[in-house]
């Protein structure tokens, strides 16, 4: 099982902070996860696929073409507003 996390505005778009899913695909790309989560809803696909949204795999920032099939925890991070 892979844990998927959402933060800030993306958490509200998704309506949930986290859930777990089984992914059978290898390699598993960001686009594969988005397709599975969006289920054809273009708004969700656009929000999760935005260039400003970063992917964190097991606490490391990864590129869009990173293979996520071995990752236990994947987070979608919208732009941050700290300080």
């Amino acid at each position: 099982m892979t844990k998927i996390l959402f933060f800030g505005p993306l958490r509200e778009v998704m309506g949930v902070k986290e859930f777990e899913l089984d992914f059978e695909t290898t390699p598993l790309l960001r686009s594969d996860i988005i397709a599975r989560l969006a289920k054809g809803q273009s708004t969700i696909a656009e929000e999760l696929g935005a260039a400003s949204v970063r992917i964190i795999a097991d606490n490391s920032i990864v590129a869009d073409d990173f293979d996520l099939s071995a990752s236990k925890e994947i987070a979608f991070l919208p732009p941050m507003s700290g300080g």
Binding site: F7, G8, P9, L77, P78, M80, S81, G82, G83
Partner: peptide
Amino acid sequence: LMDYLKTDAPFWKK
């Protein structure tokens, strides 16, 4: 430190 915290620290403010 503050300039970096503002942009790079993972927080979301509402």
